[in-house]
Design a protein around this nucleic acid. Structure first.
Lengths: 348, 348
DNA sequence: TGACATAATTGGAACGTTCCAAATATTAAA
DNA sequence: TTTAATATTTGGAACGTTCCAATTATGTCA
C-alpha cells in the first residue's frame, strides 16, 4: 500500500548509487559499470519502478516524446482501420506509441484533436484530413518542427509530405478494362468535386478515355456524395441521360454498391446489363453479389509507408516535404461483366 | 523562426503579470480579474502559446494526464474498430485523448503496449484482452490506482470492471428461433473452448436447447478456430455425424461464413438446406449471400459504455469492480431459412 | 480616517528526469 | 612508486508547470 510513486531517487538510495547513475542505466549508457547496471536493474524490478516519460520529456527540451499522433477521418470505414493498423505496426516496432483519433469528417473536431495532441508533445503526426481541411491548418505544427505526413487525401497547398495511392493510374486501368470489354459510353459516377482525390481520379478517367480513343463528355461525369446513397442518386441521373452509358467507373466502392442498388431498382442486373467498377477494394467488395470489380489499394501499406516516412523525418531532425504514391491494381471480379460465374472463395 | 518554445513565463512577461497569474487563467480560476484574464488570453494567442501537459502533469503528482489507453486485440476486425470509435466518442467529449494500440492477439505485444502506456501516465485503461491473457496481468495497474475496464472478453480472475455483451441471452434467442422453425438437431459450431466468451455462449446454447425441450448432445458441440476457416472445418465434422444436425448456431459471424462455404462445397444451400445463425452482426453480415441471420451486438455501444464506466472510476478516485452486460438482439435475415426472398437494402 | 474584510496577485518550492562539468576510482605506462 | 590516461560516478542546475503561503490592492463600514 505504498502510496507514493517510486522515483529514480528511491532506486538510487536503495542501490547505493547516485540518481545520475540510475539515469545512466535507464538510457543504457555504456559508461556505467556492468556490476552497477545489473544491481540497479534488480532494484528497479524489486521496487516496481515505472519510468516517467513526462518528466524525462520535460528535460530533453524539444526532444522526443516517442508519441505519434494519428488522425483519421472515419475509423468505422475498414479502409482507415487497416491504415491505422499499418501505422501501428511500424510505429510500435520503432518503440513509439500511437495516439489515435477519429474526426468523423469534422474539421472542428480535427482541430481540437490536433491541438490536444500537440499539448501532449507528439513527435510527429500522420493525418488523413477531414474533407475541406484548410492546407494552412498544419502550418503551426511544421513551423514548430513537428513533422507531418498526410495520407490518402493530399493537401495541395500544404508544404507537408504525403502518401497517396496512385488514383490516376488506377482509374486509367479501370477505364481501359471497360473499353476492352467493348464499352463506348463509360460514366464517371460519384464523389465530391472539391477534393484533391476527386480531381486525381477524374483526371485518370479522362486520360483513360483518351487512351482508349473514346470521347470525353462532360455529362457523363456525375458527382454525388461518396456514399452508397450517393451512388443510387448518381446512377439515377446517368440512366436518365438521352444517350445512356453502358458502364461506369465509380469514385469509390461505396458509390459502386449504391450504383448496383440503383440498377436493380430499375430491373437492371449489374454485370450483365451494366458494367460497374469501384475503387478501394474494401473488404465487402469480394463478398458482395455480384462481387465487385474494383481498383485495389493497400491501406495497410499506405499506413506503413506513411509511418516510415514520418519516422525518417523525425530521426533526420529536419524534414523536407516528400510525396510518395503507392501502386494500385485492378481486381477483376463480376460486376464489370467479364466473369459470369459465382465463385465461392473458401477458407481464410 | 523563434526556436525556443513559448512558456508561461514568456506570456507573463509580455502581459506584465506573474507566471502564477498566467497559470491561474490557464486553469480558468475565478480568482483572476476579468481584465487580466482577457489580456493574458490575448497575449497567448499572439505568441502562439502551447500548453505543456507533460510539465503540468509532473507537478500535479498522481493527478490526471487525461490520457486513456485503449488496447484491442484485432483492429482489422470491424467489430473492434467500431468499439474504438465508441470509446473515442465519449473520451473525446470529456476532454481526454485516447492512446490506441493493437495487439493482434499477442500477449507479449499486449504487455509491451500496456507498459508503454503506463510510462506515459495514462489515467485509465480500456482493454479487450488478447486470448489467454493472464488475469493477474493488470494487477500492477490497479494496485497503482489506475482504473481498468475490460471489454468484450471478460477476465474471470481479475478484480477489474468489465463490459460484455449478453452472450448467454443471445445464444438462447438464436436457439429458440431455430427451434421455432422446427429444427430438432441444432449444432453449436466453432470457437476456442479456453475462453470465457465461449463458455458463456455455450451455456446460452445449452439453456436454449433445454428451454425448447430439446436434448443436449455433446457431439453437437464442435469447437474450432473462431475464423472462416474454422467454420469450414467445423461444418465438415458436423456433416460427418451419424445423426446429422439440420441447423447450427455459430460462435461468431466469421465461423458462420465458413459454415456457409463448407455447405456449398457439399452442394447444400445455406438457408434452404441447412439453417445457420451467426453472432456479432459484423458489417458484412447484411450484404452476404444469403444475408446472415445473426445475434447483433453493438460494439460502439460497448465502447461508449466502457468509456463511461472508466471515466466514472477516474473521477471517483477509487474504483470498485463493476460488471455491465449490454443487450443483444437476434436479427433474422436469410441464412436461417426463415425468409427466402432477396431483399435489396438501398441507401445508407 | 483607520481598521478590517475581500479581491487579486505573486515569488518561491516542488514534481521526476536529464544534462553538464567536475570529482573520484581504476588501470596502464614510465 | 608517480603520472597520465581511462573508466566510473556524482552533485547541482535545468525543463514548464502548479501549488502554497504570503503579499498587495481594493472596497466597506464605523
Amino acid at each position: 500500500m505504498t502510496k507514493a510513486r517510486v522515483t529514480v531517487i528511491d532506486i538510487a538510495k536503495a542501490a547505493g548509487v547516485s540518481k545520475s547513475t540510475v539515469s545512466l542505466v535507464l538510457q543504457g549508457s555504456s559508461l556505467v559499470n556492468e556490476g552497477t547496471r545489473t544491481k540497479v536493474n534488480a532494484v528497479m524490478r524489486e521496487l516496481g519502478y515505472v519510468y516517467n516519460r513526462g518528466a524525462a520529456n520535460l528535460r530533453q527540451a524539444g526532444a522526443k516524446s516517442r508519441i505519434i499522433g494519428v488522425v483519421v477521418n472515419d475509423l468505422t470505414n475498414s479502409f482507415f482501420a487497416e491504415l491505422a493498423v499499418g501505422v501501428d505496426m511500424v510505429v510500435q516496432s520503432a518503440g513509439f506509441v500511437q495516439f489515435l483519433s477519429n474526426t468523423s469528417e469534422s474539421i472542428d473536431r480535427q482541430r481540437e484533436v490536433v491541438a490536444s495532441m500537440r499539448e501532449h508533445g507528439i513527435s510527429g503526426l500522420i493525418v488523413s484530413p477531414a474533407r475541406a481541411t484548410d492546407a494552412a491548418d498544419f502550418k503551426p505544427l511544421v513551423a514548430a518542427g513537428i513533422p507531418v505526413v498526410v495520407v490518402v487525401r493530399n493537401l495541395p497547398g500544404a508544404k507537408v509530405s504525403s502518401v497517396v495511392s496512385d488514383n490516376q493510374a488506377g482509374m486509367m486501368s479501370a477505364v481501359k478494362h471497360l473499353a476492352e470489354l467493348g464499352h463506348k459510353r463509360i460514366a464517371f459516377l460519384g464523389g465530391f468535386p472539391d477534393t484533391a482525390v476527386f480531381d486525381d481520379r477524374l483526371a485518370g478517367y479522362r486520360s483513360g478515355m483518351e487512351a482508349a480513343g473514346l470521347d470525353y463528355h462532360q455529362d457523363l461525369v456525375i458527382s454525388s456524395a461518396p456514399s452508397r446513397a450517393g451512388g443510387v442518386e448518381a446512377i439515377g441521373k446517368a440512366i436518365g441521360l438521352a444517350d445512356k452509358p453502358t458502364a461506369a467507373v465509380c469514385f469509390n466502392d461505396a458509390v459502386a454498391f449504391g450504383v448496383c442498388d440503383g440498377l436493380r431498382a430499375r430491373r437492371l442486373e449489374p454485370g450483365s446489363d451494366f458494367a460497374v467498377v469501384g475503387f478501394d477494394d474494401v473488404i465487402e467488395a469480394q463478398a458482395a453479389v455480384p462481387a465487385l470489380t474494383t481498383v485495389s489499394v493497400d491501406p495497410q501499406g499506405i499506413g506503413r509507408r506513411g509511418a516510415q516516412l514520418l519516422l525518417k523525418q523525425i530521426n533526420a531532425g529536419k524534414a523536407e516535404a516528400e510525396t510518395v504514391t503507392t501502386a494500385v491494381r485492378l481486381v477483376v471480379r463480376e460486376s464489370c461483366g467479364a466473369r459470369k460465374s459465382v465463385k465461392i472463395e473458401t477458407g481464410l
